[in-house]
């Protein structure tokens, strides 16, 4: 089965790293995976999104889609733009810190969490994206949790260990939130 996940938000929210982590984890599980960042006119600031396609055995045909199965939405404009396109039955996770409306769809598995408040609370305001990642993985089990945690060292290679720790903590905060609340 091929699963396609869209991650969308403002530039600078760490949207692309969410996608990268998923990609990395899927690869280390030996699955096929493809990662396409938004690219084009959206140069600086503006919006950012990426699509991750994960397949178990088969080669990935299209790394693009109009209709992702799951969507991780980090701000309001992204919800407005993508809500309609998610496949029925898919997962929609919303960052309520930056989305001031309720979703309209009733045929999705919708979960919400206030990423930015949560990130502030643990003193890691720039790692809100990792909370989203942790919550999504804990909720769906789309990739193995340990594969992601193992990936931290590799992906952050060369960065300060404090940075790695901060992100790991944020990730686990998301995991815990999903386990307790969803």
């Amino acid at each position: 089965m091929e699963k396609q996940i869209l991650v969308a938000g403002f530039g600078g929210q760490g949207v692309l790293s969410i996608g990268l982590f998923l990609t990395y984890a899927a690869m280390s599980e030996g699955r096929n995976v493809s990662y396409v960042p938004s690219y084009g006119a959206e140069m600086r600031g503006g919006t950012a999104n990426c699509i991750v396609t994960i397949a178990d055995d088969e080669e990935i045909s299209s790394p693009l889609t109009e209709t992702p199965r799951d969507a991780l939405i980090l701000n309001r404009p992204s919800l407005d733009r993508f809500e309609e396109r998610i496949q029925p039955g898919g997962v929609l996770i919303i960052n309520t810190s930056l989305v001031d409306r309720e979703p309209q769809r009733e045929d999705l598995q919708i979960r919400q969490l206030p990423l930015n408040e949560m990130a502030d609370k643990i003193g890691a305001p720039r790692s809100a994206n990792m909370i989203m990642l942790g919550a999504y993985i804990a909720f769906t089990g789309i990739v193995d949790m340990t594969a992601v945690l193992d990936g931290f060292e590799d992906i952050f290679k060369g960065r300060k260990s404090a940075t790695i720790e901060r992100n790991r903590k944020a990730f686990l905060t998301g995991v815990e939130y999903a386990r307790n609340n969803w």
């Binding site: 990609t23 396409v36 690219y39 990935i60």
Partner: peptide, 10 residues
């Protein structure tokens, strides 16, 4: 295509 240059795959 430019997009293939930006994409990541194993």
């Amino acid at each position: 295509e430019g997009m293939l240059g930006q994409m990541m795959e194993p």
